[in-house]
């Protein structure tokens, strides 16, 4: 026990005294890792997905040294403002509420309509139970509708609630649900009309981090200009065509 304690002290001390060996600026990319195809943790335990590829490309163009970290969705913004990482690249829609606290780059993914997903053949009646992830724009939207909102901590659980019959439907971004529907062998389907709630998806940065924001904006510009971004969107979102 003693040796273990000493080892822990030594490593902690090493972390405290760890000296800077910075060449290119290191940027820590914060993501959720549970929202495919935007971001997910693959079987090798690494962050993967559309945003991983976009992020890596942006970093290469802006000459930044990028490190990927995952964080629970719930506390993803406070951990950005307190400096545990430098960007949020997690399928986060640009909203006024969020914009008051953090800054966003320009969008790198167009506004994604939200869709209801239910068991195939089901209809949504008034007062139906609709699941959403806690603290998402969808949860906020549902609270103001005639539907009964039920909130779960992770996207997985919202989908599980529909398959188990706990909820009649789930409201989430179309591109997230599309993958689930594909994998469900016809068990699940979209229902009702799309709703547009949020703006496009942008990278969140601290308000005081104007320099980083400018660099990322310039890199997004160049990716839009030469078509790489459009190609990546087509690759990850089933051939979706965007006007970038």
């Amino acid at each position: 026990m003693n040796i273990l304690a000493k080892m822990a002290m030594a490593t902690a001390l090493a972390a405290v005294l760890g000296t800077a060996a910075a060449s290119a600026q290191t940027v820590r990319m914060g993501t959720e890792g549970a929202y495919p195809p935007f971001n997910f943790v693959n079987d090798n335990g690494e962050v993967d997905g559309f945003e991983r590829e976009v992020g890596d490309e942006l970093c290469a163009r802006a000459n930044l040294d990028c490190v990927w970290v995952t964080n629970e969705w719930d506390s993803i913004i406070p951990n950005l403002t307190s400096g545990n990482y430098d960007t949020i690249i997690a399928g986060m829609s640009i909203t006024d509420e969020r914009d008051q606290v953090i800054d966003f780059t320009q969008e790198y993914f167009p506004p994604d309509p939200s869709r209801y997903m239910a068991l195939a053949g089901a209809e949504l009646s008034d007062g139906a139970v609709v699941a959403a992830q806690t603290a998402t724009i969808q949860a906020g939207y549902l609270a103001g509708t005639g539907y009964t909102l039920v909130e779960f901590a992770t996207p997985d659980e919202t989908v599980a609630a529909v398959t188990s019959g706990e909820a009649d439907a789930v409201l989430a971004d179309e591109s997230y649900l599309a993958g689930i529907i594909d994998a469900s062998n016809g068990e699940l389907a979209f229902v009702g009309d799309p709703v547009s709630i949020g703006g496009g998806v942008g990278i969140g940065v601290r308000e005081s981090d104007g320099e980083l924001k400018d660099k990322l904006n310039a890199a997004i510009d160049s990716m839009k200009a030469d078509g790489t971004l459009a190609a990546l969107i087509a690759k990850w979102f089933d051939g979706r065509v965007v006007s970038y």
């Binding site: 403002t81 909102l149 901590a153 609630a161």
Partner: peptide, 28 residues
């Protein structure tokens, strides 16, 4: 309500609301 039972109609316990405010004000 923290990570097992879902909250219905935004009716939850004290921690649910504390969490809600921490999320809305971004200040824990």
């Amino acid at each position: 309500f923290f990570s097992s039972f879902p909250a219905w109609r935004q009716e939850g316990d004290a921690l649910y609301y504390a969490n809600y405010f921490a999320d809305k004000t971004f200040n824990p």
